[in-house]
Nucleic acid binder design. Sequence first.
DNA 1: ACCTGAACACCGTTCAAGT
DNA 2: ACCTGAACACCGTTCAAGT
Lengths: 242, 242
Amino acid sequence: MARPRTPLLSRERIVAAALRLIDDEGLDALSTRRLATELSVSGPSLYNHFATKDDLLDAVVDSVIGEVDLSMFGTAAGAAGAAGAAETGGAARAAGAAGSVRTAGTAWPEALRDWARSYRAALAAHPNIVPVLAQGPGRRPNALRLADAVFGHLVESGWPRGQATRIGALMRYFVTGSALASFAAGFPADAEVYDAADYPHLGEAHRLAGHRGTVDEGAFETGLEALLDGLALRYARLAERS
Amino acid sequence: MARPRTPLLSRERIVAAALRLIDDEGLDALSTRRLATELSVSGPSLYNHFATKDDLLDAVVDSVIGEVDLSMFGTAAGAAGAAGAAETGGAARAAGAAGSVRTAGTAWPEALRDWARSYRAALAAHPNIVPVLAQGPGRRPNALRLADAVFGHLVESGWPRGQATRIGALMRYFVTGSALASFAAGFPADAEVYDAADYPHLGEAHRLAGHRGTVDEGAFETGLEALLDGLALRYARLAERS
DNA sequence: ACCTGAACACCGTTCAAGT
DNA sequence: ACCTGAACACCGTTCAAGT
């Protein structure tokens, strides 16, 4: 058939199909040939829209990051978010929060908490792609926008720039780590694995996989609260010195 | 040549070569054929020692986990560790710590801190394999031993079992997240990436990659302290109620 | 501009054949 | 028991050819 008068593919359609394939069957199942088949097209066709498979993966990753809510960081994030309002639908909330948060430096723990939950939810919806995304923002616009919003808000809240960088980093460590893989599901449900002679305290570990959702959710919330409590202690010590 | 009178390969030699390849050139560079070439052997030879490539990867992962020090968790971990003493060389330290730590329930924050540092150091030495290892302990003996030691120590320190599970999970989230990829290196060193109109707060981000080591180390230590401080608050509230 | 089939240099894995 | 070469069904990517 060669070139049809209306294109069969678009970057958006390819990205959506790739994410679906990754979600359903894992990162290894994403091959250019398989993806092309899924799109009823021949393998090399994809190269009219992406230079390489890595390029395509980058676009998939950025589409996931784009789902993270940044509106709690106020004006700056709101303005940046408005550019992509049609995609994310976050502009209304951003506008609502703008102005009030911007001057309220003490609100950083709440902002960080809300953001971390949204961040985790976005990644946990697509766990198979987290290893790729955890490599850093690279040149992906949504990932850079996220880093900018977090760092900007922390600095405006009174955190020294060096500390703000570290907090951005450690929050990413925690969120990506929690979304990378289920803790509970990592323990085989087969009770015979946990020989009492070898692992005296893991007698109940085979039940973990069954409570997968609540265990991981509870661990995330516990860790998030602990992290924010610990950072609040640091913040208070910061104020004492000035 | 067919079968030589003394075997050319062993599981240990294969695992060591695979880890070296992964460290030097990344997870994608590990192909059975490439690895076989590295070992001066033909591709299918590996299948005399491992059933599949995933099996081989499992062994590589467990060898990395085996480098994590568990001696700070006292007797239980020491006894388990003694079984693999020749491999890890951790038996002496385990014996030294045993007995004193076992009854000292209040020592959990120090134990957790030392363990987290050793855990991170072991993973950070082999960052390219962290995505595989983060999938959970599975049936890998060293990974199960680690989970057993942490959980056992927390329970013996007075944490309720549910909380101990969550703490084990959230610590793994944080450590694997911090070892998965450098935060600093994720930001391109090219200053032109950070257009002030798009990312108003990232004007200095191109310098991050240059301070890679200190940024990531600082973020890890800050996060670890915050986490332990936050957990100590919880622990204190626990004591109040009983 | 956008799709196709053919081709190249790779994969993981199986299997019969050798010692 | 442990290695080999040949073979199968896959990969990512390039390229000339079609409209």
